[in-house]
Write a protein that binds this DNA or RNA. Sequence first.
DNA 1: AGCAACCGCTTGGTATACTTAGCATGATGG
DNA 2: CCATCATGCTAAGTATACCAAGCGGTTGCT
Lengths: 116, 116
Amino acid sequence: MKGRQSDQWTTLGEFIRAQRQLANLSLRQLADLAQVSNPYLSQVERGLYKPSAEVLKGIADALKLSAQTMYARAGLLDGEGADQVNDVEVAIRLDGDLSTEQKETLIRVYRGLLGR
Amino acid sequence: MKGRQSDQWTTLGEFIRAQRQLANLSLRQLADLAQVSNPYLSQVERGLYKPSAEVLKGIADALKLSAQTMYARAGLLDGEGADQVNDVEVAIRLDGDLSTEQKETLIRVYRGLLGR
DNA sequence: AGCAACCGCTTGGTATACTTAGCATGATGG
DNA sequence: CCATCATGCTAAGTATACCAAGCGGTTGCT
């Protein structure tokens, strides 16, 4: 794998960082959960290193999102053209913790936000 | 990622080799298609090395199987803990049509709904 | 004031993924 | 018989993923 440089990985890092912050985890906490060292995680988040699949999975697990999502984001899941993955409404409907009413509420809010 | 040695990887190697032979490809040919060196592929097939996700994807593509299959075979697709949870927040984050503010609004609404 | 406990980051080192050169064998065929 | 040429493999080096130690900054407590 030679030339494939690019910021594919830096955006992945940003994504991880965003998710981590949304989960209210410190860098060290997530590193601990994902079983990597905290400096390394820091570097990953800043796009300095390309984490291996194992590490990626560890991070995904720790953040409680599917490895699938992680790989997709890392651009190493078939996808190329077409993110068939992850439509917001689909995700909402699949959610196990919301009632049907709540789902519709949320979707309505979503559509409301879109329409402006 | 520490101790996870084991022959997880050797069976993966065997799998790859089998697929390669089924496709009537020589080691060098597949290596070329997958954009890795042939000695390296040889070592991967014999389980001496754990290929990175990128390489795995390259091989999967070259063999015309889905990356999913490859990862699953490599044991780094959700196995273990396997809560197929959530992903609503992730989907929101990934949405291309919402601004950052709007995303956070929507996530806040989502969490609000959860908390009752 | 201190100092303790957190935060994220830099530095320097080790382990391992990965490559380039080349070896040994086994076909082909001139 | 001896060139090729393809096969898979070994050996030795380079690149990079990953870690342990430690630094400067911020917060908060006594």
